[in-house]
Each structure stands twice: as C-alpha cells, then as structure tokens.
Design a protein around this nucleic acid. Structure first.
Lengths: 159, 159
DNA sequence: TATTGTTATACTCTATAACTATA
DNA sequence: TATAGTTATAGAGTATAACAATA
C-alpha cells in the first residue's frame, strides 16, 4: 500500500465566516462537499498498489493517445526526470511501451499496452459503479440537481 | 516547490459508457466535475512549499483541537512513525508545539502555534475567496443549484 | 505486559544538475 | 547550439521493525 486512500489531504474545514454571509457560507459548503466526494471517489481504484501519479499517466494515454516523454511531463506538470521514472515503473509493470521515434530519433513514443488499458477501464468502471449506485438511491429531483451542478462546477473549474 | 499544485492526480476521463446510459453518464459527469473543482481549489494555498499532508495536520488541529501523536496518525490514516516525521517538520517550521502530557507521561500533546493557525486561516481564506468570487459571477438559480448539490454530495460521501 | 512515542532503515516520488544522443 | 531523454543525487513522505519510557 503506497497510498493512504482514504486519508484527508485537505480536510473539510468548517469555519465561521465573516464577510458576505450568503456567499461565504455557500463557498464553505461547496468546498467541503467537493473535497469529501473527491476523496471518497479516489478511494475506488483497480490496482491499489498504483499511485495516483502512475494512474494519471495511464489515464492521460487513454484519453489523449500516445505521448512523448516531454508531452507527458508537461501534461502532468512534473519534471522530465520525474516522469521518466514513473514511465519506467509503468513500463516494467507492463502497462505501457516506449518506442523510439522514427523521424526524430531523440524522441520516444509512449503508449498503453492492453494491460494498461485494462487497468484504466477497470478503475473507471469501479469509480462510476460506486457513483451510479449512490446516484440510483437518490430521489429523481436530487439526481437532476447534481447533473445541473456538475455542469456548473466544470465551468467554474475552468476559470 | 514540493508539490505539483495544478497537476492531475486523477484526470477527468470522458469515456463512452455502456450500461444504464442515464445514470452512467451522470456518474461520469459528476466524477469529472468533482475532480476538476477539487484540483482547482487545492491550487489555492497560503504556503505553497507546504505539502497537502502537512497542511492536513494543521487543519485537523484547527478543527479538532490538540491531539496526541497517535490521534493525529489515526485521523490522517498514516502510521505513527510517518506522522512523527511530519510533526517534526512542522515543529521545526514553528507551526506546532509538542508538550509532554502531565498525566500520562508516555503521551505528547501536539497543538498549533499562532503561526500554524495563521497558515490555516490564510489558506482557507484564499480558497473561499476564490470560490466566493466564482460563485458571485453565477446566476442566482445556479448558486441555488450548487447549494442544493453540496448537501447531496456530502450525504453521498458518507456512504 | 501493553501502550506511546521515537529511531533505524528502506522504498517511492519529487526535484535540480549533469550527461548523452540527436537535430 | 538547442532539444529530448536519461542518469546521478538528494529531500520529503511513506512503510515496517526495533527500541525506550511509562502505565
């Protein structure tokens, strides 16, 4: 276990707020709810010996296709040596492959193996299975409220 | 900088889902929205050289008061030696104090210093300030939808 | 003996600096 | 010279095992 799945990296802080009572209470509530649900979701994973950072690489390859090392490092906002290490671990585990670029021989193309794809699929399946179960036990109008909120939250996150 | 503030530990995966189209699409949307907003919020912090794990300790002390080492380790789901190391770093940085327990002299009481409290306050202030700003630019009915959703999300996270 | 905290040691993930190969 | 990737090295965070002090 390399990863405290249900720990609290960012605890949900309930504080008395001072300015603009309506908005600030809403902000605190939304912050707490977001962190708690994210933590709960993060606890669902397919290979629980895999770190978030490793899984993020597999997921990026799934969503955006093959990358060079530098592209992966940029996307995940880590340095090239850090990404290199992560990629090496994933390569050794059989989840991805490194292939020299035929055109520019300084580059390597990194892509998922079938096993790597399976890990991503299974993790996503577990997370959404848990969420679907939770959603199915809600009232229809509650589900609708969440659907609406999800759209707004994504818009906010893009600010 | 010890911490990739805006990296993507758990990328937002958009997949074609197979079963129960309504619920599964809703689940994917909510998962994505939750992770994105959480990531965006996490990027707001007072001391950007402080890890999430260190901040979590300060926040726990703020919310729940003084702890023994064992209590902190249990709360954050790490081992006692790990927590001991984190506490030592925070103690050296001047954010908390260790005091031997007068009654049971095996124990130590760990509590915030004024500096530690200031870090927590400032981080929470920044996060909520960002959120308040974002909320204030929404339509009133959107804010209402988020408020309702926050309540439901908290309920779901407790499952 | 059991509990609480600490130290010893090791492995992962991160970084910066230096190096190799290629453009 | 500049770029892409890698290797060398070090610090932070995690763990398990062993130890010291106290109950």
């Amino acid at each position: 276990m390399n990863d405290s799945v249900d720990a609290s990296p960012l605890p949900d802080l309930t504080f008395a707020r001072t300015p603009a009572p309506d908005l600030s209470a809403a902000a605190s509530d939304l912050r707490m709810a977001t962190f708690r649900l994210a933590r709960r979701l993060r606890a669902q994973r397919a290979v629980d010996t895999m770190s978030d950072g490793q899984f993020a690489v597999l997921a990026a390859l799934t969503v955006h296709g093959a990358h060079t090392l530098g592209q992966l490092a940029d996307r995940e906002r880590v340095t090239a040596p850090s990404m290199n290490r992560t990629v090496t671990l994933l390569e050794n585990a059989g989840y991805l492959t490194r292939t020299p670029d035929e055109v520019d021989r300084r580059k390597v193309t990194i892509d998922l193996t079938d096993d790597g794809r399976a890990v991503v699929d299974e993790t996503v399946r577990r997370r959404d299975a848990w969420l679907e179960e939770a959603l199915s036990s809600l009232a229809p109008d509650e589900r609708e409220a969440l659907a609406r909120a999800a759209e707004i939250m994504r818009k906010m996150a893009e600010r």
